[in-house]
Write a protein that binds this DNA or RNA. Sequence first.
DNA 1: TCTGGGGTCCTAGGACCC
DNA 2: TCTGGGGTCCTAGGACCC
Length: 477
Amino acid sequence: MDAFYASAEQAAKPSLRGKPVVVGGIGPRGVVATASYEARVFGVRSAMATAQARRLCPNAAYLTPRFTLYRDVSEVVMGLLRQLSPLVEPLSLDEAFVDLEAGGVEPTAEAVRAVGERLRRDIRAATGLSGSVGLAGSKMLAKIGSEQAKPDGLLLIEPGTEAALLGPMSVRVIPGVGPATAEALRRAGITTVAETGEAGEAELVRLLGKAHGAGLYALATGHDDRPVVAERDAKSVSVEDTFEEDLTDRVRVQMEIARLADRCVTRLRAAGRSGRTVVIKVRRYDFSTLTRSETLRGPTDDRTVVREAAARLLEGVDTTAGVRLLGVGVTGLADYTQEDLFAFAQAASEEAAAAAEAPDAPAPEEERQEESAEATEARPHRWLPGLDVRHAEYGAGWIQGSGVGRVTVRFEEPWSEPGRVRTFAVDDPALEPAEPLPLIRPGQPPGRPAVPSPSPEPAPGAPGASEGASAAGSSSP
DNA sequence: TCTGGGGTCCTAGGACCC
DNA sequence: TCTGGGGTCCTAGGACCC
């Protein structure tokens, strides 16, 4: 998808179409996630500090990300990809590999190009957004192709034409070659793909190490037979927070680690997983970052166990000079916890024992703590720019800005004309947070489901969730 | 007003085991 | 009677991707 988050925001907010839009962290330490092409003209880029983006492009709309919307759109697009082939490998919300051969597509330039063009039309019809397609005989070439095709294009790299196309390009186009690798190569006089291949495998291994050197040599010389892999289980789950101001109070640091441990466990359990190694991450005032980890005797998804491990790990870290980020993660994931295994073993033995007698083996159902503690906590909501609201009188809109006790809302919908702006007191009872509207008017394109709107079960306790959901509810497929 | 958040993979040293 | 070789696991850090 092209400039995915920013394009989704422009599709949702008619007044922003054709204008510079920057989606990312809004706070003092935020970074840019996606800049619209209009904003890129001013030099705004992904991963740039939002503060710097504001200097470069003060007139852009700066919006906080709405991941529920992006996830909904993503599911629609991934669904279209799965119609092409059972072998679809998502790389992120907005990018995936599709093995067309496994989908039975005839391996000719004409057939493959037709599939790509039809896909792009279908994506636009179903989401209102544009995507770009790279077609080639390997993952690397397809990825480079789609990159070159952006925005809103398609590139077919026919077998035999790779070397001429890639040779003169910067080695940075090869996936896996970042700033550090490019600099190491540059010091050896290597800057292009062609030069990388000419350097030879031994030289690249000497410069970059065994795995990276050999891998890069293969890719640079056009050897890439990595398969498209449909579903891969996550190997870790982690959460982290950067604080608007450095934390110095040790008790506060301990509190935040406990909160992060809880959030991490909530996500772990939602995924039905458990893990054996607990990791904490500490980024200090000077951006130096360290991790500490502890491996348990068996996998867990127990809040208390993770919280206590995280607290122990924190004990070994000096935080007196100030901490800007804390994180908690779990790796070594398994599908079952130690307790589950115990329960299984017990159930099995009881079953065996009871086999001859009465058939009443009470499966020891482990009692799960409820997840609601954090979610139901009444948090005063913040009017963050970009988020959806609903006003009792004026209807659906989004936050344009807020400050000094006031909040400015633009009232428009994805399918309306650009709307007008009104200002309210931040505590105006007629104003409530809402769920994103679908990008395409519900029931619009015949047959095809548009962006499904908000998850049928809104987060418990999310203020206004039910109202927002019912407002958009007619789009449910 | 420098530098997010969620991931994956690789390296390297030490412990430990056979 | 100066200390092999190979394997796995754990820990910490770093590059890279979107």
